[in-house]
Design a protein around this nucleic acid. Sequence first.
DNA 1: CTGGTGATTGTTTGA
DNA 2: TCAAACAATCACCAG
Length: 115
Amino acid sequence: MPKETSKTTKRKAAEKAEKAPKGKAKKDPKAPKRALSAYMFFSQDWRERIKAENPDAGFGEIGKLLGAKWKELDEEEKKPYVEQAAADKTRAEKEKDEYDGKKADSAGSGDDDDE
DNA sequence: CTGGTGATTGTTTGA
DNA sequence: TCAAACAATCACCAG
């Protein structure tokens, strides 16, 4: 089982660090990106409520409040969010479908967005 | 077949 | 424009 959840597999710090200069070194050319997370949908619907109940809450405050509430919700409460996550997952699945398909077909053709 | 790793996703506010 | 707390995820590749 993979470590716990938190400061494990930390990467953003380095990712943002390389964001300053002109991007020029990725893993996948078009990285089909993954799917959103239940938290993403949950926040989209709660972000307004959080601020509604915490108009004074700042950046980190709301974040913590959000997460705190998120866990407070019952499985049934997150269900809708999780469902969206599952739905988005399917979306990403397709997303990769073309990525994988294209990539397999790009056997030589000169297709490359790059910038 | 199994494991764990990394990559990714979206929000908020402020300088 | 980007940064970090907050949480989930889960597809990916490898031996």
